[in-house]
Amino acid sequence: MGDQEPQPKQHRSYGIQTPGTKGVRGKKRYAMVVDLRKCIGCMSCSIACKTEYGLPLGVWRTWVKVMEKGSYPNTKRIFMPRLCNHCDYPVCVRNCPTQATYKHEEGFVLQRYNRCIGCRTCMVACPYNARHLLPEKRTDGNLPRMVVDKCTFCIHRVKKGVLPSCVQACVGGARIFGDMNDPESEVSRLLSTETVAVLKPELGTSPAVYYIGADWEIMDEPHSYTNRSVQNREEFNDFKRNHKGDAFADIVEGESLMAEVGKNWIGYLKTIPHKAKETLAAFKIFLFD
């Protein structure tokens, strides 16, 4: 700040979506480096994030993919923590019809729960599965429900001078967070000295989560599908059967597809009571308050 040098020309921004700030002088650009050489798969990050936000079961702001690789006895275990990339070119923000999700000028891609209508356009748009719809039921009913949620890079902590919760908790010390525009920062140092990779670079989303020592197979999308263990597939089917995502298109593999489509319909109808309740409450407030 206080830097009066001319700013490079920025492309046009829409609404409050600020353009990406990677390398823009005088602006902060928070980013995360995940040093996979240090990741031990303890999933402390995942739990720290869940407890920080009281997240409901079945949704994750961050998670750790696990892969077994190689054949006996030359095998390895690969871990891959995942979270929102806080992209500099966030498709999710561009596609949101109500500007409920926006890009903060310091790099955060954020969510305004009171604006979000729960249309899930951003979920469809995000190539990284970084977003989820908060279910109707959660432990603390006063926290947002039935709106889309995602990793916030813990802005509420960062703004108070503390590292994000997952970084705080990372046992291996694999997660490093900071301002990549600041040449003094640890992230800058790592970005300039180590070889890093981002997920799906070909999509041009310009992610701000960088990986050191990433394994190509676990970064690969089709691979995640075709090389699931049987156990993992069954688990996912359990998830699709039992997690009450409202009106989602969860198809249980191996079951008759049209019956599954029918079940989706039933799921949709089941949302009527709680949505009606909320609608009524809203009208009451509108009419009588």
């Binding site: 994750w60 054949s71 979920m123 989820h132 799921g267």
Partner: peptide, 21 residues
């Protein structure tokens, strides 16, 4: 034979379903 198996992943919903179709 090189093998690789994804043994753990968080699960995600398909966001748009029957209604949209």
């Amino acid at each position: 034979m090189e093998e690789s198996i994804v043994t753990y992943n968080a699960f995600h919903h398909v966001a748009w379903g029957t209604t949209i179709s």
